[in-house]
């Protein structure tokens, strides 16, 4: 399976560590990864500003992967959701035709053949085993957009997902029972109400502490940002960085 790596804007700027470690880990695991010049997914902000621009931005990204015969793998749950939502909407032939008339302005076309995955989906399905050597008690934090809304989330139990914990346990981490794992980090509130943002992010950190965690691990660059800028007592690590830092030895078949 060929994959086109879509870090997303956040994982390219403040969340750079997450993008770098994801790419490194996937390559170590022998995956064939390409890095086309993707644009911003626009997220709900551009979608609400102008739906057709949002559709075309995402269709352009999908067309870049299609051009090289790849599916997309992304580190960012928001990009994941936007790309998947676009794919759903482009299932309507008329919408696809309209989008392609816009993409013609940049000499591109999308035919609708690309699937979109999050890094955790790709890594958790691999048969090659990742083994870590660590005594860390880890709180696995999902946040929101990897799960919700249900029509766009990963294939797991929406109320009590387990794919992330199971993946970390299989790798050799001790994973704590973390009640706030699917609560919101408050990230978007950073732009509209920073007091509420801080309050929210701290609540998540305190819940992890209560659960007995030594560290929180994230799979979203925005959650990573939120949880680590509001405090410096509890370590917060992107899950791919956490794995690379604690890798036992060579990855076995």
């Amino acid at each position: 399976m060929k994959l086109a790596f879509f870090p997303g804007c956040s994982a390219k700027s403040s969340g750079m560590e997450y993008a770098k470690s994801s790419l490194e880990l996937m390559k170590k695991l022998g995956l064939e990864i390409a890095c086309p010049e993707f644009n911003c997914c626009g997220t709900h902000i551009v979608e609400e500003y102008n739906k057709n621009i949002w559709l075309a931005l995402n269709a352009r990204n999908l067309s870049l992967a299609e051009e090289i015969g790849a599916d997309i793998v992304t580190t960012c749950p928001a990009c994941y959701q936007n790309l998947k939502k676009t794919n759903l909407e482009l299932g309507d032939e008329k919408v696809l035709e309209d989008v392609n008339s816009v993409l013609a302005s940049v000499n591109r076309e999308y035919r609708g053949s690309v699937s979109v995955f999050h890094v955790i989906e790709v890594l958790s399905k691999l048969s090659r085993k990742i083994a870590v050597e660590s005594r860390l008690k880890v709180a696995a934090y999902y946040g929101c957009q990897i799960l919700r809304p249900p029509e766009l989330g990963i294939d797991d139990n929406i109320e009590n997902p387990t794919v992330f914990e199971n993946f970390l346990k299989n790798a050799g981490f001790e994973v704590v029972d973390f009640k706030a794992k699917t609560e919101c980090c408050g990230g978007p509130l950073l732009l509209t109400d920073s007091d509420a943002f801080k309050k929210r992010a701290l609540t998540i950190v305190l819940e992890a502490k209560k659960a007995g965690a030594d560290c929180i691990t994230t799979l979203c660059p925005l959650c990573q940002f939120s949880l680590e800028v509001v405090q410096d007592k509890m370590p917060v690590r992107p899950f791919t960085s956490l794995i690379l830092e604690n890798l036992a030895s060579q990855i076995s078949e």
């Binding site: 979608e47 609400e48 739906k51 929101c144 799960l147 919700r148 809304p149 919101c184």
Partner: peptide, 29 residues
Amino acid sequence: LCAECFKCYRCPRDVKPYAVLAEMRAEFI
């Protein structure tokens, strides 16, 4: 002020409140 958390997906009438609020923001724009 919506935090885009999609917690309101549990709507028993499937109104999708998150989508209604998005529609309101698009109207403002």
